[in-house]
Computed example of a mutant assay.
Amino acid sequence: MPGQPPGTVPAMRALLVVNPKATTTSERSRDVLVRALRSEVDLTVAYTRRRGHAADLARDAAAEGMHLVVTLGGDGTVNEAVNGLMAAGDKADNRPALAVVPGGSTNVFARAVGMPRDWADGASVILEALREERSRMINLGRADDRYFTFCAGLGLDAEVVRRVERARLRGRTSTPWLYLRSTLTQYFLETERRHPPVTLERPGERPLVGLATVIVQNAAPWTYLGDRPVNPCPDASFDTGLDVMALRELHVPSTTRTVKQILSREPQPHGKRVLNLHDLETFTLRADRPMAFQLDGDYLGERDKIELHSVADALRIVC
C-alpha cells in the first residue's frame, strides 16, 4: 500500500455494516466500536438505509476485495450480509469473512457462534480473534435462492413472525411477551389447524404427507426466550446438514405437549404427532395452499413450494 515501509504487510481491509435502528446500541457505543476496530483493520463504515441494503453493501465489499465484513445489528442484518457475501463467488476463500457484533433484541446467530450478548464483549472477542487469526467455517442453509444461517419455517412459526413484525411496525417493542402473546393469538384465532397441508419430499424416499407446520434448523438453538434457548432440533449444528421438526397436527393436546417438551429442554421433542429428521442435504416442502414462510426470523411472504439445501463450508466466521 502507498506510504507503507518496505516489507510491511498490508492492513486487513474491513467493512462495518451498521443498522442504525439496532436496538441495543447507541451512537456513542458505535463510535467506541469503530475506534476499536480501526486499531486492528483498515475500516470503512456504512449505514443501512432500507431493507436489503446490507446485502448490497456486503456484495460491494466482496467486489472491492475486502477481507472482512462486520455487522452491527440483529439477525436480519446478518442474514442480508450473508446473502450479499454468498453472491460474490463459489468458494468461501474467495469471499470476505464475516464477524458479527450483537446489536439486535435476540441475536440468535451471534449467540449460536459463541458470541456474548453484550456488544462490547462481542467486539472484544472479534478483536482477539483478529489478533490470533482465529476463524471457523460454517455450513449454511439455502431455501430456493435465499441463504439462511440458523432457521427457516413454513406454517405457524412464520405466521407468528409475521404478526410480530406487524406489531413492531405499529411501534411495539420486540419482547418475549410480545412473541408469546402473538403465538397464542395466532394459534387459537387465525391458524388453519384442521387440514395439515404440507408434504416433505426427499430424494429416494417416500414423501412424508400431512404435516401442519415445519421448522428447519441449520444450528441450535432455534431462538431464545430471554436467556432460555428454545431447541426443537437440539442436534442441529453448523457442521452438519439441516434438521427438521414438524408437527403432523396442531390439536391443542399434542401441540401443548410438544411445546412443553421443547421448553423443558428434553433431549428432543417426541410423540406420534412429531416428525424429527437430522442432517439432511436436500429436501422439498410442498403445500396444498400458500403458507407463511420465514428465514432467520424474517417474514418472506407465502409459499406453496420451497426447495431447501445444506451448503457445506459456505462461509468463514471470525469469532
Rank of each mutant, 00 (worst) to 15 (best):
D145T: 05
I306T: 07
L208E: 07
K21I: 15
A54K: 01
A212S: 15
M291E: 11
T175N: 04
L98N: 08
L295T: 05
S26A: 06
G155T: 14
F109N: 00
K260E: 06
L275T: 05
V230I: 13
R303G: 04
Y224R: 08
L300C: 07
R28H: 10
K260Q: 11
R136T: 14
L300P: 13
T282D: 00
R49T: 04
G155F: 07
I317G: 08
R228W: 11
E64Q: 13
T71S: 07
G74S: 09
T173I: 12
M291L: 14
K305S: 15
R146N: 07
L156W: 09
R28S: 12
T240A: 15
G3V: 07
S29A: 10
A87M: 03
P197C: 07
D243N: 10
M12R: 14
R228A: 08
T24R: 04
Y299Q: 03
G89D: 07
R181C: 08
G210K: 01
V34A: 09
P10N: 03
N94F: 00
V32Q: 12
V69L: 08
D144G: 06
G297C: 09
T240L: 14
A292T: 03
G74F: 06
V209Q: 12
L33Q: 00
M137D: 05
V69T: 02
R38W: 00
M86G: 09
L130E: 03
T256M: 12
D288V: 07
V160T: 05
T255P: 14
I215F: 15
A22N: 06
D235N: 14
W177I: 12
M66N: 12
A292F: 01
P2S: 14
L127S: 11
P269G: 06
E266C: 09
R202L: 08
V100W: 05
H278N: 11
R146T: 13
A167P: 02
V69A: 02
A63R: 13
A158F: 04
V113W: 00
T282H: 04
R38D: 09
V101C: 11
L242P: 00
H251I: 01
R166N: 11
T191F: 15
V82G: 06
C319A: 12
A54Y: 05
E133W: 01
A220P: 00
L250K: 01
